[in-house]
Simulated assay, not measured.
Amino acid sequence: VSQTVTITVTDVDDTDPVFTSAITASFVENGTGTAYTAVATDANAVTYSLGTGNDEGLFDIDGSTGAVTFQASPDFELPADGNTDNAYLLEVKASDGINTVSQTVTITVTDVDDTDPVFTSATTASFVENGTGTAYT
């Protein structure tokens, strides 16, 4: 006795998303808004998340757009990253629902001159009536 059997092989998504975004970014201290945008391509929709092993706890990520933002505006003079060098390390993950890949990103906070000028001159001056020359420096 013999029987014909048909075996159908189904395709499995075994293609990882591919990051096309940079691995570094700069962000000005005291700034707000998007510090970095993760971008990955895939045949399927990609969602984004952050890892947990570096400075990720200081950031939020929009799972659908990949936009990464600081939870609090960074201060160059008081860095909050793990080794306080103003270079924040993040593991950004991209998933197509089956396959997940990660990319390490460094966001460097740059300094802004946020120190007000200080007057060193006197606050009062005298000048002789009808005088000429410099009255105050």
Rank of each mutant, 00 (worst) to 15 (best):
T41E: 11
E29Y: 13
G33H: 08
A38T: 01
A38E: 07
T32Y: 06
T52I: 05
D60L: 11
D55E: 06
T32D: 06
F27S: 03
V28W: 14
Y48T: 02
F59W: 11
T24H: 13
N30F: 15
N44R: 05
A22F: 13
A43D: 15
T24Y: 08
V46R: 01
T52E: 08
N44P: 05
G51F: 02
A45T: 14
E56D: 07
N30Y: 15
V28N: 09
G51V: 05
L58S: 11
N30T: 12
T24W: 06
S49G: 15
G51K: 07
T32H: 10
S49C: 03
D60Q: 07
G31E: 12
A35I: 12
Y36S: 04
T34Y: 06
V46Y: 00
G31S: 12
A25E: 04
S26E: 14
G57C: 00
A35K: 03
G51R: 10
D42M: 04
N54C: 10
A38C: 02
E29R: 09
A43R: 09
L50H: 13
A35D: 05
S49Q: 02
N44Y: 04
A40W: 00
T24Q: 13
D55N: 09
A43Q: 06
A25I: 00
T41F: 00
N30A: 12
N54H: 09
T47Y: 11
I23A: 15
V39F: 13
I23K: 13
I23Y: 14
N44C: 02
G33K: 04
E56K: 04
I23S: 14
L50I: 06
D55I: 03
F59M: 06
G57S: 15
T32E: 10
Y36D: 10
L50M: 13
L58R: 11
A22I: 08
T41V: 14
S21L: 12
V39R: 11
A35E: 05
T37P: 07
A40C: 03
A22W: 14
T32N: 08
S26Y: 12
V39L: 08
D42P: 01
F59E: 07
G33I: 09
A25R: 06
A25H: 09
V28P: 13
F59V: 07
A40K: 09
L58C: 07
T41Y: 00
D55C: 14
A25Q: 10
A38W: 04
A43V: 10
F59A: 11
T32K: 07
N54L: 12
T24K: 14
Y48G: 03
T41R: 06
E29V: 13
N30P: 14
T24G: 05
Y36N: 01
L58T: 14
E29F: 11
T34K: 03
V28Y: 06
D60T: 14
N54G: 10
N44F: 03
D55H: 08
T24N: 08
A25Y: 09
E56F: 03
T41S: 06
A40D: 00
N30H: 15
V46G: 04
G57T: 15
E56M: 10
A38D: 02
Y48Q: 04
Y36K: 14
V46W: 00
G31K: 03
S26I: 07
T24A: 03
V28G: 09
A35M: 08
Y36G: 00
V28R: 14
A22H: 03
